[in-house]
Design a protein around this nucleic acid. Structure first.
Lengths: 147, 147
DNA sequence: CCTGGCGTTGACGCCGGGGTGAAGGTCTAG
DNA sequence: CTAGACCTTCACCCCGGCGTCAACGCCAGG
């Protein structure tokens, strides 16, 4: 199998495959003509890379999985190093979620407060019970309050 | 107040202030010598920008808040446009949290499964009760099983 | 007057990750 | 023969939010 076919079967591009090779992630044997030669096993490695990439793993983080498969293990995550990457990623995701959630709550609180302030202002506008007279020029036409 | 002082009081840099001005976000009056001249109101605008930036808002997203203050409103979030930005940001944060959480669960499931597979293998190794004989070459010395 | 510290503008750099594009050559399938 | 697939290398891109010069102007203190 040559690079184009592998790329197509894995749903990626020849450029990406050469890039992976340049990173030492997916080495390729070469035919006499210099063309890269791949087999079904390489397709497995590549699929492992793609799955992890889709999960948001960085390329470097996929390396232990690929090496695990290369070492003949049944799955990319059969090796301790891969499990460690899983755990690190879990911790990373948890930290991100916590951070985002905290920001979310702060923004929500700001929104609530700003809406309350706006409503309070609107209410005061409709029914001004404070002693200070409004300085409005009465440009508002649709006034239900004064009607 | 000149640019250096403003930057210092807001905990940012002169470079950032010039950048904001280049984006039309924080315009500055000029003195006779061409120096930027700022007042306390500009400091308020700048603080509003910084707060939102720290929350992870992009510069463009801070614009409605700044314009709201410039229009004389009591707070940056007194205007509908600002509230819309809050709401959009909330939705964005929620989407990110949901995405990350989903990925987190998938990774957690993978980890659990991989650990189970590893433990099953280890158990089978310690006590092989299946009918198929192992094809090991008996390179393992610490064999308790065959002893 | 000189120096140092602030100011000005514009242009370019950088950071990271995952690639892509182009140029110029070789090989192969039909 | 020719189109298309393949090879190499080097450079470039994307994003936002600045940082880092370069080369100069302005001004106060000693």
């Amino acid at each position: 199998m040559r690079i184009g076919e592998l790329a197509q079967r894995a749903g990626t591009t020849t450029r990406a495959l050469r890039y992976y090779e340049s990173r030492g992630l997916l080495p390729a044997r070469r035919g006499g003509n210099g063309y890269r030669a791949y087999d079904e096993e390489d397709l497995r490695l590549l699929r492992q890379i793609r799955v992890l990439q889709d999960f948001g793993f960085e390329l470097e983080e996929t390396r232990p999985f690929v090496e695990c498969l290369q070492a003949g293990h049944p799955a990319g995550d059969s090796c301790p190093a891969s499990l460690e990457v899983y755990r690190a990623k879990l911790a990373e995701l948890d930290a991100m979620v916590a951070r985002l959630t905290e920001v979310r709550e702060q923004v929500a609180a700001q929104l609530t407060q700003a809406e309350a302030a706006r409503d309070a202002l609107a209410a005061a506008d409709r029914e001004p019970r404070c002693e200070l007279a409004r300085t409005d020029d009465r440009t508002i036409e649709r006034g239900e309050g004064t009607r």
